[in-house]
Every structure is written in C-alpha cells, then in structure tokens.
C-alpha cells in the first residue's frame, strides 16, 4: 500500500519517486479557494479538508495526471513553488499520506 511504502522505515526506504498512484475510481474533486487556503471535497470518499496553496496545487497536479512524486514535484515547481526544498517534499508526502489514508488515491 502506498502509505506503507511512505512510512516504512524498518526496511531500506525506496526512493519515493518510485511510488506510483492514481486517483481512485469515482472520486471527483470540488474546491473553493479563499485568501490562500482551499477547502476541498472528494466525492466517493466523502472527505472534506483544508489545504494550503501548495496542497491545492498538488491536487491539481494529481488531477492533471501526475502519478509519482517526481512528476508532482515538477508540477509544483512549474506553478511557482521552490525547488529542492525539504519542507516542500515533506508537505507533499504528508498530503499524499492523507489522501491515501482516505482512499482518495490508490497505488497504481
């Protein structure tokens, strides 16, 4: 499972770029943006959450077809977020973990 891959510290960590995912069947994304924060609703999974600008951009990336971490990283960079920023990667991984937990994305 995607979450296991990200969290698994007992075994040698595979470079995260190898983890691939896709949006789960039947999930549609609704969003509303106010002053730098975005509220998201994922139908199917039925989850509502708040994300930052980065999170909103990442979700757009996933919807646009980014299915692994390097593609997502590049997408975020193209949309104005800093390059090779440790925090950025952590933030993306946090978001991906949440999405996997709620079965919004699943291993491809």
């Amino acid at each position: 499972m995607l979450v296991a891959v990200i969290q698994d510290a007992a075994q040698p960590i595979r470079p995260p770029t190898e983890a691939r995912w896709r949006l789960a069947n039947g999930v549609e994304v609704h969003s509303r943006r106010w002053a730098g924060e975005t509220a998201l609703y994922f139908s199917g999974a039925g989850e509502t959450m708040v994300v930052s600008e980065l999170g909103a951009t990442a979700v757009e990336g996933i919807l646009a077809g980014c299915s692994d971490l390097s593609a997502l990283d590049e997408w975020c960079r193209d949309h104005g977020f800093a390059v090779r920023n440790e925090d950025l990667l952590d933030d993306l991984l946090d978001l991906l973990e949440r999405l996997a937990d709620y079965e919004i994305i699943e291993p491809a």
Partner: peptide, 28 residues
C-alpha cells in the same frame, strides 16, 4: 479562515455526509 469555517461547519453538521458534493457547494 473561511476554508476552515467550512470544514468546521461540515464536521459539526448532523447530516453533511448525506449531501455529498452538493452539501459542500451549498456551504461554500
């Protein structure tokens, strides 16, 4: 924050989950 207000209202609703996407859009 309006986004956080939306999520708070959703989580303090008796039946938000029943409305699905249209509940989200209505609150928004």
């Amino acid at each position: 924050s309006k986004a956080r207000t939306l999520v708070f209202l959703a989580h303090n609703s008796f039946n938000y989950h029943v409305h699905g996407a249209s509940g989200f859009e209505l609150l928004a």
